[in-house]
């Protein structure tokens, strides 16, 4: 039909078009949210609570809630995830048990976040009696990001050259000390990157907290981990779909979306920068 050279040109044009569309999506989304949200952001918006039945005022309690969730879920998921990754990468030998653990991690990674929400509701809120609370939601989010942290840490440790472990073991150093003194320091930047990425994930997840303790509106900031909380993503959802005056509060919605986007993308940016920086410094 066409000469090979011509069909190549046509095909490459289509491939270029495809990537152009994808990149256009990215910029369109960022552009819309930024250009519409920037006007809403002010010191008051960031430091005040919602006012007048959430048609005015700021998003401070939602920011606080999100920060609490990040701290709570990371406090649980980071140690668990890193220890599990150490086992899988440094101790485990191929075998049935390891295979089962790896499959479990893969499946946790693929489980929809709303299913985690259901589980959190049944297990933490009801069965363990934590109620709708920061605690229940943090634990639920910890499960959501656990596979992310394990995978990232494993990947980071896999970049440590095997020769260094051998060298350390050959000096009569135990495996655990080798992990602590050689493997972890070298893998640290990669592990930090993974941890930061999962912070972004926690900040943005909505479905799990919707079922485990996020509140529509709270007059006070939470003071205990057994309190309910407001959170940025849920706040945006509420304002955009069931607020008092949805059309009139669009600027607040855009502003909230922008703050959320900035947190998540800022966190991703930092992670990418750390990865870049240390990739350059690696010398083997």
């Amino acid at each position: 039909m066409f000469s090979p050279k011509t069909s190549e040109r046509i095909a490459f044009a289509f491939l270029t078009l495809a990537i152009a569309i994808v990149v256009a999506f990215v910029f369109t989304i960022i552009f819309y949210i930024t250009s519409n949200g920037i006007g809403a952001i002010s010191t008051d918006f960031l430091t005040q609570g919602p006012k007048n039945r959430m048609t005015e005022g700021g998003i401070f309690p939602a920011i606080v809630g999100t920060v609490f969730l990040i701290i709570g879920s990371m406090a649980v998921a980071l140690p668990l995830g890193i220890l599990a990754a150490i086992y899988l990468n440094e101790y485990a030998e191929e075998g049935r048990i390891v295979w089962i653990i790896q499959m479990a991690i893969n499946n946790l990674a693929g489980t929809p976040s709303v299913v985690f929400g259901l589980f959190g509701l049944a297990m933490f809120v009801k069965y363990m009696g934590f109620g709708a609370s920061i605690l229940a939601a943090s634990l639920t989010l910890a499960l959501v990001v656990l596979p992310v942290i394990i995978r990232a840490s494993e990947e980071a440790m896999a970049t440590v050259p095997p020769g260094l472990r051998e060298a350390s073991l050959a000096l009569g150093v135990t495996r655990w000390q080798t992990v602590r003194k050689i493997v972890l320091p070298i893998a640290l930047p990669g592990m930090v990157t993974g941890a930061i990425l999962s912070v972004g994930r926690v900040a943005g997840e909505t479905a799990p907290i919707l079922l485990t303790g996020a509140a529509y509106f709270l007059p006070r900031l939470p003071t205990a981990i057994s309190d309910q909380f407001m959170a940025l993503p849920y706040h945006l959802f509420v304002l955009a779909t069931s607020g008092t005056n949805i059309a009139a509060t669009r600027p607040i919605q855009y502003g909230t979306a922008l703050v959320l986007l900035l947190i998540v993308l800022g966190v991703n940016f930092v992670a990418v920068m750390i990865r870049r920086h240390y990739k350059k410094k690696m010398r083997w």
């Binding site: 990215v26 819309y32 949210i33 990425l197 943005g204 997840e205 909505t206 849920y234 959802f237 919605q253």
Partner: peptide, 14 residues
Amino acid sequence: EILAGVPSVVYGFF
């Protein structure tokens, strides 16, 4: 990667 990072509620809002 940015596409992967944007929270689903922001996609929904958009």
